[in-house]
Design a protein around this nucleic acid. Structure first.
Lengths: 228, 228
DNA sequence: ACACTACTGACAAAAGGTGTCAGTAGTGCT
DNA sequence: AGCACTACTGACACCTTTTGTCAGTAGTGT
């Protein structure tokens, strides 16, 4: 096995699982532990974000380049097109990420292909308003962290009990964003239009995936959903 | 200079310019020509799409991995979101490319993050109709190849002379696609709604960039455009 | 105190990379 | 047809790097 291939393999091994010891890697690749240390040292020197801790093992920080991830020019066009739309549609954080992507791709493109793609996607049509974006950002955060949220719709009667939700997914339907959630009040799935949400509080409660209450379960029974 | 770095450098050199000879590379990197041949052989063995022709030199097929192109998880989410929209909006080829991108990213993602992102973008709202997609694909091809085209709008009087256009750019406005072109009949820029194009023929004529007639020129004087 | 692990240094043996040279074979130009 | 240019291959001696072994240091968690 060539050294170069081995280096790729190490990255691969670290990417797949959470934690790996040098000994594990050495056995997997059929080299000595010392060599693994040397290889990893080299990888780090080349900018691969591997981190080691004594007594623990190695991890690779997520964000690392998806391995040899090739894109054809057409695929890049598709990404750029999508990214341009996303810049206008999504909440602030995702829009910023989209901008980053656009820059990275632009940098990587051979000069002659730059700006050739569907460049100026107008924002007129897509633009979400600022409030919606804020709520979106909040919900996305809650979704990532599995935090329960309490929301209130606009025009909702005040005395109505606020509902506690487990946010499961955000969908973009071209005109509006919707939040799909497990509603603890109704004990069922509910879908909410994000632009109609007046207030949104993160309760701090963390929920776990329970059978029958996950996004996957929702998707499996799509037809039965109820629009709130 | 380590061998690995040299290999990256070779890819970099080939990516930047059109054509490079082994001798050029060898001088640039300070190694013998023989070594360059060996390195390139190794790169090809590792799947890098480099092609050599005797008497000519080396080129790298476009499509090759943008160099160490890192994306953060958030950036990947942005791409996935965009890609999902593109699948519904764009013409067949680009949509297929978008599908490919989605798969590649899915594969590269650590398992725990899969399907967490805004997965099911509904196609209801965006869907372009089949005919528009066909015209789009044709126009995109013509644009890439700098082929002149002749188009007819729907509801256009037959005896009107068909116009010869130099396609310059395609824009997606959220609801409709437009083609920006240099109209040889009017001798000016014109913008056409793709969904209103009845027929579209590629004439076979190839045009060159002329000062005052390029997409860039158009963009510079955006306000003065005329909608046809 | 102990097990586990990351890390470092040194050294000899093994492996692999390198330059030189010599030669073959396509491309495109004159 | 001849020529210049270039990619490509094989062989061989030299040199550089990599590798495994061994021995030791230093953090983490039990």
């Amino acid at each position: 096995m060539r050294k170069i291939d081995r280096l790729f393999e190490i990255v691969q091994l670290l990417r797949g699982q959470r934690l790996r010891t040098a000994e594990f890697i050495s056995k997997k690749l059929g080299v000595s532990v010392r060599t693994v240390y040397r290889d990893i040292h080299g990888l780090i020197a080349s900018g691969v974000p591997i981190e080691g801790e004594r007594g623990i093992g190695y991890v690779i920080r997520q964000s690392i380049e998806l391995p040899p991830l090739h894109f054809t020019p057409l695929e890049l066009q598709a990404i750029q097109l999508g990214i341009n739309i996303v810049k206008a549609v999504a909440d602030h954080d995702v829009a910023a990420a989209a901008k980053e992507v656009a820059l990275k791709i632009q940098d990587a493109l051979p000069t002659k292909d730059r700006g050739k793609t569907y460049a100026p996607i107008a924002h007129i049509y897509f633009e979400s308003d600022a409030k919606t974006r804020d709520v979106l950002a909040k919900l996305r955060g809650a979704l990532d962290e599995k935090n329960k949220v309490e929301i209130r719709y606009i025009n909702e009667v005040k005395k109505k009990p606020s509902r506690t939700l487990r946010p499961l997914g955000l969908e973009y339907w071209g005109k509006v964003w919707t939040l799909t959630a497990w509603c603890e009040l109704r004990n069922d799935f509910r879908v909410f239009r994000v632009d109609r949400i007046k207030s949104c509080e993160i309760t701090g409660d963390v929920f776990k995936n329970e059978t029958g209450k996950t996004y996957r379960d929702y998707l499996a029974n799509f037809s039965e959903c109820t629009f709130d």
